[in-house]
């Protein structure tokens, strides 16, 4: 590996200044489970590595039914799984975080890093897209908030500008009968990267089981994570019966633009998008019906 300089700022201000000073030569370090591999492979060669885990604001999970969730960019996945609010109010996102690699990886890896790494196969990104998450960014020109849908531009590329970093992810509190789910397909039972990932969030009117709000996010079936807009829209206002789910699954398949690679063929991935969309919607619906959040 090439020589690097390491900084561990204690405040967001300090981090922003460091990153601004070094611009494209710097890279924020969160869990490091992707970055260290890239440094070794030489696919990224930053001169400055800025560790953001010492910044208290970035290492926090805060949740309330009034304000929703603020998930710090440096919170390790295992802390999400161990958080009662996360498990109760965002079970899909929590599952996605708990699916990333092994426990060893989850002890380090973060949802923020998963997003900023820009991999189309990131497990937590479709779950965030389904939840309508927003990303709060800080940079030399100040702060801005952007939707997670559209955050990734291409494999390994995001909207983050040189010197900019992700501070936190913001997700609204769930409605009374709302919940989410995430499923991925992998060939083994553990340790693989998603061949297909599907996140779904549903809000229901339980009086007649009608869908009030629906969002479906897809992973590993295009150059970036995908918000399946048509599939999501097709559910809104409908009774969540087998026909509605089937229609949404078909539209989700149509939204996917997968390729053939060592993890699966395009044909396989398209088929599995349908399978997982059906399964994910069923789980999210069951959870939403059972939920009674406020």
């Amino acid at each position: 590996m090439h020589a690097i300089n390491y900084e561990a700022p204690k405040s967001l201000d300090e981090a922003v200044k460091l990153l601004a000073a070094h611009g494209e030569k710097a890279r924020p370090l969160s869990g490091g489970t992707d970055l260290l591999i890239q440094l070794r492979a030489g696919t990224r060669r930053p001169e400055f590595v800025v560790d953001i885990k010492e910044i208290p604001e970035l290492a926090r999970i805060s949740f309330s039914l009034q304000h929703g969730l603020k998930l710090g960019a440096a919170v390790p996945c295992i802390a999400i799984h161990e958080n009662g609010d996360m498990r109760k109010y965002y079970p899909g996102l929590t599952e996605a975080a708990h699916l990333i690699g092994s426990l060893q990886i989850q002890s380090r890896a973060t949802v923020g890093g998963n997003l900023c790494n820009g991999s189309p196969a990131a497990d937590t990104t479709p779950a965030l897209v389904a939840l309508g998450a927003q990303a709060r960014l800080a940079g030399p020109k100040g702060e801005r908030i952007v939707p997670v849908d559209g955050f990734c531009l291409a494999p390994g590329r995001t909207v983050l500008q040189p010197g900019e970093l992700l501070v936190e992810l913001q997700i609204p509190a769930p409605e009374r009968h709302a919940s989410d789910a995430y499923l991925r397909f992998i060939p083994r039972n553990e340790m693989d990267i998603a061949v297909v990932g599907v996140g779904a969030a549903l809000s229901l009117d339980v009086s007649d089981d009608r869908v009030v709000e629906a969002r479906i996010g897809l992973g590993a079936v295009g150059p970036t994570p995908i918000f399946a807009a048509e599939a999501s829209k097709s559910l809104i206002g409908k009774t969540l019966d087998a026909a509605a789910i089937e229609r949404a699954a078909k539209l989700a398949v149509a939204a996917a633009t997968p390729i053939d690679d060592m993890r699966g063929t395009a044909e396989f991935r398209r088929h599995v998008v349908g399978v997982l969309t059906r399964r994910t919607l069923a789980i999210a619906a069951e959870r939403a019906r059972a939920a009674n959040q406020r």
Binding site: L29, G32, I37, G101, S102, I105
Partner: peptide, 21 residues
């Protein structure tokens, strides 16, 4: 971080020491 042969325990959690500076 795929084989776990370098696992150590840090502050009570298992960690791949190859993926940490």
């Amino acid at each position: 971080g795929d084989c776990g042969a370098c696992t150590v325990v840090i502050d009570g959690r298992p960690v791949c020491s190859c993926l940490m500076l």
